[in-house]
Structures are given as C-alpha cells and as structure tokens.
Design a binder for these strands. Structure first.
Lengths: 223, 223
DNA sequence: AGATTGATCTCGGAG
DNA sequence: CTCCGAGGTCAATCT
C-alpha cells in the first residue's frame, strides 16, 4: 500500500470520459495494482479509480510528471502530479477477510426453517426451486395444499415483484403444480412495490429479521 | 484526511453484522467524518466503513485501545487498534468535483436531436414525457403519425423492457394518444432482453454512441 | 467467459 | 423528506 497525497488533476477515458480539475487528493495504490483517487469527503467511493489488473507507466515531459494507468480493456487513468505533499508506503500482507451475517441468504434460511412466520399453515416444499429462468427462493404449499411461490428480499422493491411474476408465469407452465399463488416477503416493502404486487394478485408480508432469529433460537432450545 | 496504518480488528453492527479478524490495514478518516477500512487489495471498496454523519469516540480499557464510530441509525463500527504502524494527516480542502461525459443522459440527448437514427421518419414529441409512474425517456410519432414510446438505456437489460411495458400500459389509458407502440433503444441489448421485448410486441434498436456524436457534429457543421 | 443477482450498494434528481 | 433510477456500478455465484 502506497499513499500519496498530492495536488493533482486526473483524466479517465474508457466506458465514459471523466475529468478532475487540479486539487489536493489522496492517491491510493494497492499491492494488487488497484489505484483510487479520494477526496476528503463523500463516503467511501473514490472520485476515480482503476481496478487490477493494470499497468502503471510514469511519464516526465513538457506536461509535467504523470502516471498513466491502463488495462487491457483500453481504459486509461491519467494522473498529473503538480505537487506531492506526502508519500508513505507500508507492506500490509494478505487480509483474512470479512465475515458477514444478516444478508438475504440468511433471511431465506430463517424463513425456510419457519415458513409459518410468513403465513399460517405454510409448509416448505423446497428452497431454490429451479425453473428455466432461475430458482424460486421458496416453494411451499398452504393449508389447502395450493402451491405458493415466495420471493424473498431484504428490501422489497419493484423489480422483486416483476421477478416473482416471471417465476410464477414459468411455474404455471408445469401443470402438475396446479394453480400457483405468489407471496412477496421482505424486511420492508416500498409502497409502490406493495401496489404492484397487489395488482399482480400477489400478497406481501414484511418480516422482522431479529424476531426470526429469536424464533430460530427458541426452536433450538426445545431440543 | 487522516491515514492510519495499523494492526487492527474491526466489528460492524447495523444493517448486518460483520467482523474483521486482526490484521494490518489502512484506516481512512475523511474531513466530513467518513471512516473506511481498506485492505491492500480488492478494488476500491473498503472492507468496512461508516458514512457521515457520525460520531467517533476513543475508548481505552481492558480490551485495549478502540475507536467506536456510531450514527443516529444505531449502526456502530468498532475498531480495536493493536499496533499503529503509520499515522499521517493532511488538509486537502474541498474538491471541485468530477465532470462526466457519456452517460445515459447524453445518449438520450443525442437521440432526441436525431430521432431518425432510431427509425426512418420518426419525429420527437418531447423528452421525459410525464406519466403517473415516471417519465418516458422519449415520446415520438412515426411516419403514419402513430405515437411511439422509447426507452433509452446505455446497456439494454431485461428490467428496461419491463419499465417500457409499464409506461406503455399507462400511456394506453390516455385515449387521446391512440394506440402506442414501444421501441427499446440501447448501445447494446442482451439476447434475453431482445426476446422479451419482441414477446411484448416492442421493437428494439442498438445504436452507436460515437456515431451519434459524429452525426451531431456533422449537423452542426451545416450551420 | 458470460449471465444473473445481491449490495451496509452509492449517488443524484424529482416530487 | 422519500422514492426512484443509474452506475466506469462492484463482486459473488452459477452455467
């Protein structure tokens, strides 16, 4: 990791064109070749960057001192250095990596374990039920034995409803399943997504992740 | 901007839970309060972060030296510092900001200027034609005076077709427009999106951004 | 390698 | 403020 703080201007040419006027910024050069230009504010996203793999060439000419970073996709990032304020390097070594808990996969897991938290009497047929256009998150049967397709999202937005609609269209083609009903499940669902779900004939349920996790541990206590 | 390189372990609790075991990393503290933890590789995304606004509290106790970053949404990022290898600070000042060229808005602009590059005889009615569920990118009339709704995307994927379908559904409710036809325009369109567009009765067109820009400058040369 | 999909998405604009 | 759409989306997963 090399950290250069410098007064610089930057040009990117590739999937689009972008230009940064002269100002003080951090230039971060990672061990794998990644380059990122950061301002002193504005979340974690850099103003400009170039991912690995790439090649860095140093140029000194009439236009001043420049770094030209380019990759095989013909993208180039040109950093013109006007004045270096600070320059430190440090070997960090490999990172053991991030452990996460609470993403969509976990939510689906918890719901598969307690389908009744979605709807009274619901029984799981299987998770990731395959169709030609991708797997349905949960396939269940309700109290009257009707097949229920369930789309699980952490945040319920409009495209999740479209996704569910496409899956159900597919499932209907399999006559052995009979009439298939749709349920849209998320920790919170946007108003527009609720309206669209209803107009498509789906029901929707908002569930609480912590509550589900609590139920799960309660169930575990029984054994 | 303060840049601390340190052997540290990190815990995030908020929208999900995440943990980073002890290792050497960069801790970036921006002037607006943003905090980001970077490894020495892996593109520009940090391993962990906390956006502004937030408050940083320093704690020294039996567990060692820690920074606890928290915001009003009850998210916390806890950084335990085991050994500081480097610590530099620099005032960067405000950034003049990034100038971009080549995004969807420009593509729409160029198409609005030359609708015939989409289809022979097409005339623009207006850009961003409003409907109850959002604006249609371009509304045109064709040679036979039929209304044509056009969805513009840089990359043509399946959700853009759904978007166009929703808009046309809306436009049909306005009887004064008559029968409305749909055209899906993008620099490149995925095969699945082409199939879906056709099955919805839409046509699709792939256009070249550089060529359009060329046409535009050719037109300018005429005057 | 390409396609699909989630993301602590981020970011900006419009209502 | 929220909602919605775009992104040089990125990054993981699978086919």
């Amino acid at each position: 990791m090399r950290l250069v703080i410098a007064r610089c201007s930057v040009d990117y040419a590739g999937r689009l064109d972008a230009h940064l006027p002269e100002a003080n910024r951090l230039i971060m050069l990672k061990a794998d070749g990644c380059v990122a230009i950061h301002a002193d504010g504005g979340a974690y996203k850099p103003l400009n960057w170039m991912n690995a793999p790439n090649t860095i060439v140093e140029i000194d000419d009439d236009d001043g001192h420049r770094w030209v970073v380019s990759n095989h996709k013909k993208e180039t990032l040109t950093i013109t250095l006007h004045e270096v304020l600070s320059d430190v390097s440090e070997e960090l070594g490999d990172d053991p990596g991030l452990q996460k808990d609470g993403v969509e996969a976990h939510l689906q897991e918890l719901l598969a374990a307690s389908p009744t938290s979605i709807e009274e009497g619901l029984k799981l047929v299987r998770r990731e039920y395959p169709t030609a256009i991708g797997p349905v998150d949960l396939l269940c049967r309700d109290e009257s034995d009707q097949v229920v397709a369930i789309e699980v999202k952490r945040r319920g937005e409009i495209d999740g409803v479209e996704q569910l609609a496409r899956y159900i269209e597919r499932l209907q083609l399999d006559s052995s399943l009979g009439e298939v009903r749709g349920v849209y499940v998320a920790q919170s669902i946007k108003p527009q997504a609720k309206v669209l779900a209803e107009s498509r004939g789906f029901t929707w349920v908002e569930v609480d992740y912590d509550e589900l996790r609590g139920m799960k541990s309660d169930e575990l206590k029984l054994f």
